[in-house]
């Protein structure tokens, strides 16, 4: 636990000092909303269309972060140092997944207001708590799968290609649940209460991915 906290602190400090990832992720999210505006040619969006735009945008921004998650470790020998240290290997998974979760939450702090401004879906205010609940759960799946995929991809030659290629299909169940769960929240006649079915699916998928990643992650760190 202390190891995980140390790595997490190191990652957040590094991000705070270099600002390599977060501004790029936020920029990509905003520009994607603009692209969607022209691609769909609508001034306001509602229902499933709005939910799709939001989830796809968040997914692509998350991909930027996922691709860069382990780059510093590889380029500056962090992996070797970590393997030399007598600590639990799973700490790396926990620390990196938490870091990615925090990045995603910060990204959404920028992306959600931008989404409300550009897409102007109805009842954004009243369904905001439910929306946040969905994003909090989907971030869990994104963070765990993102960390797992990133740990695989960082050792491959075509790092930036392999990551999204493996990550996107693995993320699809979470994407389906988020998008179909958010959709009814953004319709004109929305009740503001989230669908229990999709929350349960997301929570179970989070649990499933977390257990699976925990089981296999050690094998990705051997030298």
């Amino acid at each position: 636990m202390r190891t995980a906290l140390t790595i997490l602190r190191k990652d957040l400090l590094l991000e705070l000092r270099t600002l390599e990832m977060l501004p790029a992720m936020a920029m990509l999210a905003v520009i994607t909303f603009v692209i969607f505006h022209f691609g769909l040619s609508r001034d306001t969006l509602s229902g499933q269309l709005a939910a799709g735009e939001l989830t796809v945008t968040l997914l692509f921004s998350a991909m930027l972060g996922i691709n860069r998650l382990f780059v510093a470790e590889r380029e500056q020998g962090g992996f070797d140092a970590f393997l030399l240290a007598p600590v639990d290997r799973s700490a790396m998974l926990l620390a990196k997944a938490t870091a990615l979760y925090i990045y995603l939450a910060l990204l959404e702090l920028v992306a959600l207001p931008a989404f409300a401004l550009f897409a102007a879906p109805p009842h954004m205010g009243s369904s905001l708590p439910a929306l946040i609940l969905f994003l909090a759960l989907s971030n869990g799946a994104f963070a765990v799968i993102g960390t797992f995929v990133s740990a695989i991809a960082v050792h491959t030659r075509a790092r930036d290609l392999i990551g999204p290629m493996i990550g996107l299909p693995l993320l699809l169940p979470a994407l389906i649940a988020t998008s179909l769960g958010i959709g009814p929240l953004l319709t004109v006649h929305a009740s503001g209460s989230p669908s229990g079915k999709w929350l349960a699916v997301l929570a179970l998928y989070d649990l499933f991915t977390a257990l699976l990643a925990y089981a296999v992650f050690d094998f990705l760190l051997e030298e």
């Binding site: 695989i152 693995l170 699976l212 094998f219």
Partner: peptide, 16 residues
């Protein structure tokens, strides 16, 4: 090793 990890995770992913 990496291919094995991939195969395990994706094998479990199929039914889910």
């Amino acid at each position: 090793r990496y291919a094995a990890v991939f195969a395990i995770v994706c094998g479990a992913f199929v039914p889910i």
